[in-house]
Design a protein around this nucleic acid. Structure first.
Lengths: 163, 163
DNA sequence: CGGTATCCACATGGATACTG
DNA sequence: CAGTATCCATGTGGATACCG
């Protein structure tokens, strides 16, 4: 594959450690999954996931700290608490689905009977893959690391050509 | 959002726990990231990631066990060992990039100077998002869980209409 | 070079009891 | 209902020494 080493995009400036600090652990994504299915109460997470109380408490607090979930009084019963996805939390849906699709593709025994679909035509969503800015599908062999300055230069060149 | 609870797509048939069993832990994705950058020797993983030897050894073995990396004698020096991504491993690229993009979008201090680009036009790849089978971008509000049988029925209906 | 073997510290996870 | 407190077992992670 052509992906050259991105030595200059070092770990200090890479988004992956940032993401893994919160999500790099078994339960975080499972809690997110439940939240995407409109689970929002402590006890519901508890019974659905089969997680220990203290761990759930800890993880919910961490997700709230990181701004992925919001902790608010319940709309109908103000004494109760509700955990809701924030915009930052919703933004993890592609990553969660990509993981899930991978698990379903390579986990031989699996046969999920519910599939995520486009409401408009009722058909399953596309596999989550890598695409160019114009939507073309890209394989690993089509990918290359470039610096911001290289990108700016070639964009400017393209614009000049058009003009 | 319209995503209804996918109670029947229960955790036993969900790909997410499968994926998290291997990847649901801080180092696995970091090792994968290095492997995607053509790091393939034990000592190189060690120094690049700053991981402990025993943990690296353990994680590499687990990734090999799960068929994500292949452990082979080095091409040039048969006494040395090489870790290479398998097809199953390469297939994790979208998930890894989705996580990384999320980290770079929401990790305020980050400013990666190297960006993954399409080799053909030299421009950055598109954000990894959810699309319909025809490539249309979908938001959370466009998504709905459906059973295999519902999907089959509506596809058959669509085909009949065409014919 | 690519590990194993140890040892230690701490985090994670489960179970149970208790609280407002 | 949504936690906290406690206890215990195991896992994770780092450091270091050693090995073929």
């Amino acid at each position: 594959m052509h992906m050259m080493k991105d030595t200059s995009c070092d770990l200090a400036q890479c988004g992956l450690p940032v993401a893994l600090e919160v999500m790099g652990e078994r339960w975080s994504f499972m809690i997110l999954r439940a939240a995407f299915n409109n689970v929002c109460h402590f006890e519901d997470f508890l019974t659905l996931l089969g997680i220990a109380r203290n761990i759930l408490s800890n993880r919910l607090a961490r997700l709230v700290d990181h701004g992925i979930l919001a902790r608010d009084p319940c709309a109908d019963d103000r004494r109760r608490v509700e955990y809701r996805l924030t915009a930052k939390g919703y933004d993890l849906l592609p990553a969660m689905l990509a993981l899930r699709q991978w698990g379903e593709k390579w986990g031989s025994t699996l046969c999920p009977d519910q599939v995520l679909c486009d409401e408009r035509d009722g058909q399953p969503i596309a596999p989550i893959l890598i695409r160019a800015h114009d939507g073309r599908l890209l394989g690993v062999q089509d990918l290359v690391w470039r610096s911001q300055s290289e990108i700016a230069a070639s964009r400017k060149a393209a614009e000049t050509q058009v003009a």
